[in-house]
């Protein structure tokens, strides 16, 4: 495109063309600021200039763009994009399951950040067909989250601002790793619903957080990401810590009662039943990293509690 046009203007021969391509790439990366990244589905996204009008199709994308420093470039997002507070003022284009394509087009976006496991694929494919660049974001581990934010910063032309923050995140991650690796493994039950009992398996990012803090998800091997289980299964696995991830404190409080009569579970007998903010743990964002730090502390205190 740009490169070819320059060729035409200068009318170069083959050798010169090769030389000039290298130069053109250098120019495009700086002056023209052409950017190219690979998204989480392995597709290449190429932008001639950093995106200025971005539409996010998942709450975590919005949050990550703010972390990348590109919050001001978001022109549209979906319901439940509630963090940081400024995100609440961004126009909505539906929810992550039902995206209003016309509303998206009306915003004239030059980049769309999609969520492959959440969005309806047909709608996103329509947008791709219409020629709008789409970046699929699907981070699960800490490396992936940081990496995601880095690529979003690159696509939005904010890499320079974001670099110190990204460094900080990497440092936090390394510190957590050195602090908690090699600690005694703690068996954890993570509860997301009470009737029926629902937990999360090893594929969910929560389990990655556990690993970092030297905890084990007792239901890591279940086949579905949010398996329905029963109390008996929990009794048999005998966790040392029960984490209640209700969407409110009152909800989690009502769940504690259910456990009180099962004193044969170590976590119950030693009083290691703790609340945890589900929103923080469910969204693969910077807050997840912060949440993980707190999680590691909870797990550590439970570990000390059990050893006593």
């Amino acid at each position: 495109m740009i490169i070819t046009r320059i060729h035409e203007i200068f009318g170069l021969d083959k050798i010169g063309q090769a030389l000039f391509s290298g130069l053109a790439f250098f120019i495009s990366a700086t002056c023209f600021a052409q950017v190219s990244v690979i998204d989480d589905l392995g597709r290449e996204i190429r932008l001639e200039k950093p995106a200025q009008r971005i539409v996010c199709l998942a709450p975590h994308n919005t949050e990550n763009l703010f972390t990348a420093g590109a919050g001001g470039q978001i022109v549209g997002t979906v319901d439940h994009s509630d963090y940081p507070e400024q995100a609440l003022d961004i126009p909505r284009v539906g929810n992550y399951k039902q995206v209003n394509i016309e509303a998206v087009l009306g915003l004239k976006p030059d980049l769309i950040i999609a969520w492959s496991s959440g969005n309806t694929n047909e709608s996103v494919e329509r947008l791709i067909d219409l020629g709008i660049p789409v970046f699929y974001s699907e981070p699960h581990t800490f490396e992936e989250i940081i990496n995601n934010i880095e690529r979003l910063a690159l696509l939005s032309g904010r890499l320079e601002d974001a670099t110190p923050r990204l460094e900080g995140m990497r440092r936090t991650f390394r510190d957590l790793k050195t602090e908690y690796s090699g600690k005694k493994l703690l068996k954890i039950f993570y509860q997301v619903w009470d009737q029926p009992l629902i937990t999360l398996n090893g594929e969910h990012s929560v389990s990655h957080a556990f690993k970092l803090c030297s905890g084990i998800n007792i239901f890591a091997d279940e086949p579905t990401i949010a398996p329905r289980i029963n109390i008996e299964g929990v009794i048999a696995k005998n966790p040392q810590l029960i984490l209640l991830a209700g969407h409110s404190v009152t909800q989690a409080a009502s769940w504690i009662d259910t456990w009180s009569e099962w004193s044969s579970i170590d976590a119950v007998s030693s009083g290691q039943i703790k609340n945890i903010d589900a929103d923080v743990m469910n969204r693969p964002t910077l807050r997840f990293l912060e949440g993980t730090r707190q999680l590691c502390e909870i797990i550590q205190s439970a570990r000390l509690g059990t050893e006593r």
Binding site: F219, E222, P223, T224, R228, N230, A236, K237
Partner: peptide
């Protein structure tokens, strides 16, 4: 429902 994929339950 509770033995096929135990301990996961199929509704």
């Amino acid at each position: 429902s509770r033995t096929l994929l135990a301990p996961t339950e199929i509704p």
